[in-house]
């Protein structure tokens, strides 16, 4: 295993960690307006209050690691997706701010405005993440220097929109399961109903995306020849999605949440397998694609980075465990 491959795998782990962890708090944002009273909305926000910003660290680490390990890919991706990423930043800023400012003033109008900002930012951010992944899988037009030569209209095709919608449904389900674990009483009953709706919607969209991918995106399964174990990820993904309704029915919601996390992990893995060895696929000419070998930093940089990652990761894991342990159980105090 060379450094480039190790960093490709590490980046996938960071992305999967982000999708699973920030995934549920984005989902909480999408479901937030379902809570009707002020007290219930405060509880919903408080359920993710102490952990959402820690979850977003995974995205920052992913961006930073991509910048240092594969600077050419970073340059191409961040330039190609300039406008969608600016929109994403806009959403992430207002999500953070709405959590902080909502409780600061006792006024119904003030709180309704921040409620809307929290919901809309979570919804649009989830959609944009899906759009980005879909475009990564389809590839984008590049020139021989690896520069993006398309326009914003190239990024919003039917496939990208479909994957974006599926991501919203997937994260709404993921967030709904988390909220069911964190709440009690009538609020929990309400989310129980909505978990079923979210799962149904996710199932429909997941099937559409899978069919579309198999028909229109041949490279999605091309690498299965080299990596036969990837079939296992497909089977696990199907089993995980099928296990969710069984668990919800039996009220084993913790297990359903783990299944949902496993499903997300499988999907991130499958996108990684489909892309390999590319970081950015050129849709116009495969020779222009940026691979983990052509886009990588020097061996020395990758080696130093690996040492830093090995020191940093236990720290991140331990503070994550401490925070989740501290705030375990039902949320009872509304701090937001």
């Amino acid at each position: 295993m060379d450094y480039q491959l190790i960093w490709f795998v590490l980046l996938r782990i960071l992305l999967a960690g982000y999708a699973i962890l920030d995934g549920f708090d984005l989902g909480v944002g999408i479901l937030h307006p379902l809570a009707r009273s002020d007290e219930e909305r405060r509880l919903v926000m408080s359920s993710i209050g102490p952990i959402w910003d820690g979850n977003e660290v995974w995205l920052i680490t992913f961006g930073g690691a991509l910048f240092v390990a594969f600077p050419e890919a970073y340059a191409t991706i961040f330039s190609a997706f300039y406008t969608p990423f600016m929109l994403l930043l806009f959403c992430l800023i207002f999500r953070a701010v709405s959590l902080e400012f909502r409780s600061k003033v006792q006024s119904a109008v003030w709180r309704r405005l921040w409620d809307f900002a929290f919901f809309a930012a979570s919804l649009v951010a989830s959609f944009l993440f899906g759009v980005t992944v879909a475009n990564g899988l389809l590839g984008i037009p590049l020139n021989e220097r690896g520069e993006f030569i398309g326009g914003i209209h190239d990024l919003l095709g039917p496939y990208a929109i479909l994957v974006g919608l599926m991501t919203v449904a997937m994260l709404a389900l993921h967030g709904g399961l988390f909220l069911h674990l964190k709440t009690a009483g009538s609020l929990q009953k309400m989310f129980y109903r909505w978990i079923w709706h979210a799962w149904g919607l996710y199932l429909v969209l997941w099937n559409l995306v899978t069919m579309y991918t198999l028909v229109k995106v041949p490279r999605a399964t091309l690498n299965f020849e080299h990596f036969p174990w990837a079939i296992g990820a497909v089977v696990l993904n199907v089993l995980a999605i099928a296990n969710i309704p069984r668990c919800i029915f039996l009220r084993k919601v913790g297990q359903a949440f783990l299944s949902s996390s496993l499903g997300i992990l499988c999907q991130v893995t499958l996108v990684g397998v489909a892309l390999f060895p590319n970081l950015v696929s050129a849709s116009n000419n495969p020779d222009y694609s940026l691979t983990i070998y052509t886009a990588a930093s020097s061996e020395k940089t990758l080696g130093i980075m690996l040492v830093i990652a090995l020191i940093g990761m236990p720290m991140v894991l331990s503070y994550t465990v401490i925070v989740y342990w501290t705030f375990r159980g039902k949320v009872s105090e509304s701090i937001y």
């Binding site: 190609a80 300039y82 600016m86 806009f90 520069e147």
Partner: peptide, 16 residues
């Protein structure tokens, strides 16, 4: 400077 990012996009983000 990035070849794929237009001046208009940069202006848009500065305004944002």
């Amino acid at each position: 400077v990035s070849a794929a990012v237009s001046a208009g996009q940069v202006l848009g983000s500065i305004i944002m």
